[in-house]
Design a protein around this nucleic acid. Structure first.
Lengths: 304, 304
DNA sequence: TTGTATGCGTTATCAG
DNA sequence: CTGATAACGCATACAA
């Protein structure tokens, strides 16, 4: 009997009207992904993971890139209110925004946070340990024998930038190495910002023998800057990235980097969302493991 | 008076219910973007352009990556029917799928095609001239003095792959250069497929003095393959890419490539969609200009 | 300007 | 299992 109905549905090519269903069940079957101009490779990984989990489900993904979460809270909140989303995935730095989270909670919209650094326990999240990861990356350079290490920071509005700097400094402090302020350059997670920062670092006298960039895009830029100066990587300059995005294998030499399982994180966060949409209780803060991927952009410093 | 209502709306934090609005005016305010596992850089550009045009508009973008348009037409058509989209942006190879287009037309859903190669006139589109572009790229190599040129093809399910090969062959034929079948290798637009193809080309005896890859990801892979063989780019091997995606400036040396204005194309296609949604008549097939970007991955062949 | 009826396509409920 | 009815929140049309 049910089957007969199904058959008729197929025969008449009938598909239920989503708007009408949504009206009566107050469901839109839309899940939003909020992010703020991060590196292209990061967005791609994020979407891949989220979409992978969504495959076969009825929900669809709406991409909501925002200019600046902190500057335009109002605007973004209005956006979310009017967008009729069933759930929201918050990528950094939106995942650290208290006003946004309060709004979602007030509106009864489930959300999951990716890589939050503050306000833990305020909402289910999945993250990695940025401090420990940066520490490992720096230790790798120290073990190779580097003592003059330059750092290219990420976008200051992403709290991960600070966390990674803290980890780096801890590793250096433990090794008894001083990190002069001149060796810390500001970047924005983009290739161009990394290029400018790396040029400034290499113009120092003496230049660093290693550069630790807070993501792979900027690390790739550091390799380019080195080439511009006639330096060889890794013989004259070691470069460490962060994220293990596609770019780390596309450049030459392939980057030594920290594998941040962005795709897995997005998958897991989306999984949390789906569970919550089924009425199950909120989960807590989940940590996924990182991993130091040693490739060919790092080596001992020249003995000079 | 209107203003008083607006005030009240703000005061009560009232937002109209999208589902209810959608029900009565049969509008979901959703626009779908259909694409099929292309290179990450391409998707990013595509989304950037589409979202840029959507900024400030009421419509939102739903991403619909599909496994294989040709293999699962039924499934995808069902997806579109049940998704209640107001309009659809078709990226290749979906932009060449007749069944999909017929379905959308039957359903009264406006659509715009990006880089279609067949069935022109069947729906508004925006594209570039792949044949002429590939021809220019090949001519550039010929002018430099290359006569043994390897080609790495893109995904055979994308018609652009054939168009680009045709352009390449035309340029070589005009120059009186024979393109031996052994010099044409299959790829899939991905870095890994390009790496395998480039290794096969470089293993030939004699190897080509230049490689023309049908996108930048595979061109980057060709550079990596050259490095593995101890070859210098561009001294020992010239490499030309296609697309001018981010990757072309991230690798070293920066790629000589064809600038395909993907972002502009997506912007323009989205613009067409918005016009159609306002009831204006369909536009025709628009062409955007390409440009040969000569950077540092090409040079005359070694005189040996 | 304000009020009131109707319909959009679906789900849920209750009677038969 | 079938049939009828209300309700979801809004837009439209009409009357007051």
């Amino acid at each position: 009997m049910k089957t007969r109905v199904r058959e008729a549905m197929r025969a008449l090519r009938y598909h239920p009207n989503v708007a009408a269903q949504g009206l009566v069940r107050s469901r839109s079957y839309l899940i939003g992904l909020v992010y703020e101009k991060p590196s292209p490779s990061y967005v791609v990984e994020l979407q891949k993971g989220a979409l992978e989990r969504l495959h076969g489900e009825r929900f669809r993904l709406v991409v909501l890139p925002v200019e600046s979460v902190t500057e335009r809270e109002e605007e973004i909140i209005a956006l979310l209110r009017s967008a009729a989303l069933d759930a929201v995935l918050l990528a950094p730095p939106a995942s650290d925004n208290a006003a946004l989270m309060r709004e979602l909670r007030d509106g009864g919209i489930p959300f999951a946070r990716i890589s939050p650094t503050r306000l833990l326990g305020q909402g289910p999240s999945v993250a990695m340990d940025d401090v420990a990861a940066a520490q490992e990356a720096a230790e790798h350079l120290v073990t190779l024998g580097h003592t003059r290490i330059g750092v290219i920071k990420g976008d200051p509005s992403h709290a991960a930038s600070d966390a990674r700097l803290v980890g780096t400094m801890q590793a250096l402090a433990t090794a008894g190495i001083a990190l002069h302020p001149e060796l810390i350059e500001a970047g924005l997670f983009t290739f161009d910002s990394g290029l400018a920062a790396a040029r400034r670092l290499l113009a120092l006298d003496p230049p660093p023998s290693a550069i630790l960039a807070q993501n792979d895009d900027m690390a790739a830029a550091a390799i380019t800057a080195a080439r511009e100066c006639g330096l060889h990587v890794p013989e004259d300059l070691s470069v460490v990235g962060f994220d293990d995005s596609d770019i780390s294998r596309v450049v030459w030499p392939p980057l030594t980097t920290i594998r941040q399982p962005v795709q897995d994180m997005a998958y897991r966060a989306m999984d949390m969302l789906l569970h919550m949409l089924k009425g199950e209780p909120e989960q807590g803060d989940v940590h996924l493991a990182h991993e130091l991927m040693i490739r060919r952009s790092t080596a001992p410093p020249r003995a000079d």
